[in-house]
Amino acid sequence: MNIFRLAGDLFHLISIFILIHKMTTSKSCSGISFKSQALYLLVYVTRYLDLFWTFALYNSTMKIIFIGSSAYVLHLMTGPFKPTHDPNIDTFKVRYLIGGAAILALLFPYKWTPAEVLWTFSIWLESVAILPQLFMVQRTGAAETITTHYIFALGAYRALYIPNWIYRYLTSTFWDPLSIIAGVIQTVLYSDFFYIYYTKVLQGRKFELP
């Protein structure tokens, strides 16, 4: 554990808190991509299978929080707030993301065991799971400020893992190329968003695409 990893995990928790807070206070899930949320649940369920055979207080608690909160968000989106979700603007073709992640996971896992292949699948899928959400923002051309805070916090989480990996490599020669490559891709996908978030939202203007 180091400060970058801890900060990354805190940003992840903050992003979930912002999302649930936004939905429950506005009683609406408008602007939130159901497809991205469903992909995140798939990511957590396939990555955290090791909950069944490994236990570490910090990691196991966080894993349960991520799976539980993700399922709760999907429950809100399919139950109480379903009327506020507009499937017509949430049209990204997620089958290509799932298919691509599955192919990469089958070709290059660290070991060909079901758990390792699913873990690798989750790493690749997470790197692109935000695309339906970004696509939705792009389609509508604007986003509520609270939604932009959510996307920022979620992006900051994996971005902060990058200095964590550099730190771990320098201090203990920890090296996990799969996580690192996927994490860098994930951060790059956010970079446009980060730029607009920084130049607009943080200066008190509305998030609108140029």
């Binding site: 992840h12 090791d50 660290y110 996990d176 799969l178 996580s179």
Partner: peptide, 10 residues
């Protein structure tokens, strides 16, 4: 330590 790679992260 490929076996342990990434498994102690989230």
């Amino acid at each position: 330590v490929v076996e342990e790679a990434g498994k102690d992260e989230l």
